[in-house]
Write a protein that binds this DNA or RNA. Structure first.
Length: 460
DNA sequence: GTAGGGTTAG
C-alpha cells in the first residue's frame, strides 16, 4: 500500500517537474525534487530523463551530462530515452562527434536504439550537411525492420530540402502520398519552407493550397514562413497581407512577427508604419526581450530621436534588461546620424573596455558617419587604427574617398583590399575606376581593372 | 523527440 502511494506521488512529482521544465524554470523544478526527497520520494528514471532533456535544451549538453552523472550516482540506470535526449542535445549544439559517441555508448551499454534514436541521428547527419550518411541511417532503419514513425519521413523531407535536394524531397513526398502516407501540417510546413528557401515561391503557394484543401489549418509557423518568403522576394504588400491575416486569426501572441515586419518597414523607409507596429508592441503587454527592445531602439535612433532612445534604454536597464552588442551598434549609428561623433567615439572606447569584442559593426558605422560628413582624415585615422576590418570597412572607406574625389587614395586602398583577398561590392569598384577616368587617370584606371580581373582568376 | 520567427554597419 505504502509503495503504491509513493509511486503515485513520484508520478505527481514528475508531472510537476515536467511542466516546470517545459516553462524552462529549471531551478523551480530542482526545488520540487528536493522537496520530494525531503518527504521521502525517490526521483526515478522519468524524473532524470525529463531533467536531462530540459538541461540539454536550455543550458547545454554538459549540463545534461552532469544530470546523467547524478542519475548514475543515485543508482538509476539510463535507458534509451536518456540517450535519445542526450543525442538530441548534442545535435542542437552542433556536436556531430558527440552524437556518434553517444550512439556507440548506448550500444555498448546494450541499450537498444529505438526509432527516435535513429530519427535523431539521421537529423544530425542532415544538419551537418551529410545527406549520404543520413540516408544510410534511413536504410539501416528499413534493414533492421524497425517500424518507422511519420516523423522519420518529415525528417527525411526536411533534410533533403535543407541540403539543396528540394526536387528529391518533392519526389519523395509525392511517392509517399501514393503509398498511403498522409502528410501532416508539419510535413507541409517543411516543404513550404524548403520551397521558399530555394526560390520556388510559386510551388510553395500551391502547397499552401493543398495544405488547406487536405483539411489542415495553417498555424503560426506556416504564416511566418510564407511572410518571410514574401519579404525576401520583395513582395512587401503580399507579406503584409499575410501578417494581417495572421493577426486576425490570433497567431501574433508574441513580439516575433511584429519585429520582422517592423524591421522590414524600417529598412524600406516606411517609418510611420514601423512606428505603428512598434507602438503596438509597446502597448500590447508582450514582454520586451533584448531583440524586440533593439528593434524599437533602432527606430528611435534612425529617426534621430536620441532623447527617446536614451529614455527607453534607461528604463529597460533599470528593469533588468541587459544591452548587447546590437544595442551598442544601434546607438553608435544613431549618434553618428545626429552628428554626435564625440559621444560616439566615447561610447566605442567604453565598449572596448567593457569587453564587447565583436564591435566591428559599430566601428564600421562610425567610419561611415565620418565619411558621410566629409571628415575623411578622421575616418582614415580610425580605419587605420582598427585591429579588425572586413569588406564593409573597406567598402565604406573606398566609397568615402571617392565621394571626396580622392580617387588615387581610393584606388590604393582598393588594391590593398584586393591583395588581402577581401572582396568588396562591384559597384564600389566601379566608382573607383570611373572616378580615375574622370580625372584623366586612365592608366591608373586600367591598372586597377586588370588587378581586379587577376584577382577574379586567382580566387575563382 | 521532426517544421517557422525578430535586432546593427557599406
Amino acid at each position: 500500500m505504502r509503495r503504491i502511494k509513493d509511486k503515485l506521488s513520484t508520478r505527481l512529482m514528475n508531472v510537476c517537474v515536467a511542466s516546470l521544465c517545459k516553462a524552462k524554470q529549471l531551478e523551480k523544478a530542482e526545488i520540487v525534487i528536493v522537496d520530494g526527497i525531503r518527504i521521502g520520494l525517490q526521483p526515478d528514471v522519468v524524473t532524470y530523463n525529463t531533467l536531462i532533456a530540459a538541461y540539454c535544451r536550455v543550458v547545454g549538453i554538459d549540463a545534461g551530462y552532469s544530470i546523467l552523472h547524478r542519475m548514475k550516482d543515485a543508482g538509476i540506470n539510463p535507458d534509451v530515452i536518456t540517450y535519445n535526449a542526450l543525442i538530441a542535445g548534442a545535435t542542437r549544439y552542433s556536436l556531430l562527434s558527440k552524437c556518434l559517441d553517444l550512439f556507440d555508448e548506448m550500444l555498448e551499454m546494450r541499450i537498444l536504439p529505438d526509432i527516435w534514436s535513429y530519427n535523431t541521428l539521421m537529423n544530425c547527419f542532415f544538419k551537418f550537411g551529410k545527406p549520404d550518411e543520413a540516408y544510410r541511417v534511413f536504410q539501416d532503419i528499413l534493414l533492421k525492420d524497425i517500424s518507422v514513425h511519420s516523423a522519420t519521413f518529415n525528417i527525411l523531407i526536411n533534410g533533403l530540402c535543407m541540403n539543396g535536394y528540394t526536387e528529391n524531397a518533392l519526389m519523395l513526398f509525392r511517392s509517399l502520398k501514393c503509398h498511403g502516407f498522409i502528410p501532416q501540417l508539419v510535413t507541409y510546413n517543411i516543404l513550404i519552407h524548403g520551397l521558399c528557401k530555394s526560390g520556388r515561391g510559386n510551388v510553395a503557394r500551391e502547397f499552401l493550397n493543398e495544405l488547406v484543401e487536405s483539411g489542415h489549418i495553417p498555424n503560426a509557423i506556416t504564416y511566418t514562413t510564407v511572410m518571410k518568403c514574401c519579404f525576401r522576394y520583395r513582395q512587401f504588400e503580399e507579406g503584409l497581407k499575410i501578417f494581417a491575416e495572421m493577426r486576425n486569426k490570433g497567431y501574433t501572441y508574441d513580439a516575433f512577427a511584429y519585429c520582422t515586419v517592423a524591421s522590414m518597414l524600417l529598412k524600406t523607409g516606411r517609418i510611420t508604419e514601423a512606428n505603428e507596429y512598434l507602438g503596438y508592441i509597446i502597448t500590447s503587454g508582450f514582454t520586451l526581450d533584448i531583440v524586440s527592445f533593439n528593434t524599437i531602439f533602432n527606430l528611435y535612433c534612425k529617426e534621430g530621436q536620441l532623447d527617446n532612445a536614451y529614455t527607453l534604454l534607461y528604463e529597460a536597464e533599470n528593469g533588468g534588461l541587459e544591452s548587447d552588442k546590437y544595442t551598442h551598434a544601434i546607438l553608435i549609428d544613431g549618434l553618428c546620424r545626429t552628428g554626435n561623433f564625440q559621444e560616439a567615439q566615447q561610447q566605442l572606447n567604453r565598449m572596448s573596455v567593457t569587453g564587447f569584442d565583436s564591435n566591428l559593426v559599430a566601428w564600421n558605422s562610425f567610419i561611415n558617419g565620418l565619411c558621410k560628413t566629409g571628415q575623411l582624415d578622421y575616418a582614415t585615422h580610425i580605419f587605420e587604427s582598427m585591429d579588425m576590418k572586413d569588406s564593409v570597412s573597406y567598402s565604406t572607406m573606398v566609397r568615402g574617398l571617392c565621394q571626396a574625389r580622392r580617387f588615387r587614395a581610393a584606388s590604393k586602398l582598393l588594391l590593398s583590399c584586393i591583395r588581402g583577398g577581401m572582396n568588396i561590392l562591384k559597384s564600389d569598384k566601379r566608382i573607383v575606376i570611373d572616378g580615375l577616368r574622370s580625372c584623366g587617370l586612365t592608366h591608373e584606371a586600367r591598372k586597377v581593372q586588370s588587378k581586379i580581373q587577376m584577382a577574379k582568376l586567382l580566387h575563382y
